[in-house]
Amino acid sequence: MIELYRIFKLYQGEVPALNDVNLVVGKGEFVFLTGPSGAGKSTLLRLIMAAEEPTRGQIIVGGRNLARIDHRGIPFLRRNIGVVFQDFKLLPNRTVFSNVALTLEVQGLPAKEVKRRVEAMLERVSLGHKANAYPPQLSGGEQQRVAIARALVGDPAILLADEPTGNLDPALTIEVMDLLTACSARGTTVVVATHDLHLLDRYRKRTVRLAEGRIVEDRP
């Protein structure tokens, strides 16, 4: 589902953020990307979602070589990739329903279909009763569940999560991680960047460790 071949990412005047990275993630697989801050985890996720281009190397997502997709094709690629961030990136002036609906609205789905799918997704993340609330009225865990609902409502083949539990307490962390592992069980490829070693111990999934832009360990 995700293939990276000899990926280099250099920023001007800095040491390489990614240095000769090779990685293959299969369909429905759950992978932890771990390593210290600045190891290149977030850069790797940004390259997979085509938010940045690699300096060198090839990235293939869902069978499509990103180097061959022009800027007009990128939105359509992203509709197949759900993304979750540490800071949730929710729109504070939109309701929970509206935040989640955005993913389907950009795809031009009819309002009825949007309503049906958003309501079902909010039930799935146990937030059906908060549909009309605004993000600032929610707890951190609820906000992250909204972000996950927004990422998943379009039924993407891939879910990328960048430190999704970084702002959450242990109980909420488990709640969010259970949602992500459930997605993987349903066939979605999930890549979670985290430096929380407790998570790695608890969930026992494939773990790819990065250090100074290189993969130093790939533990099944």
Partner: peptide, 16 residues
């Protein structure tokens, strides 16, 4: 700009 960034993340085209 934050709203635009999120729209683009979820696959909004420039026209949208």
């Amino acid at each position: 700009s934050a709203e635009i960034e999120i729209q683009r993340l979820v696959g909004a085209t420039n026209a949208f």
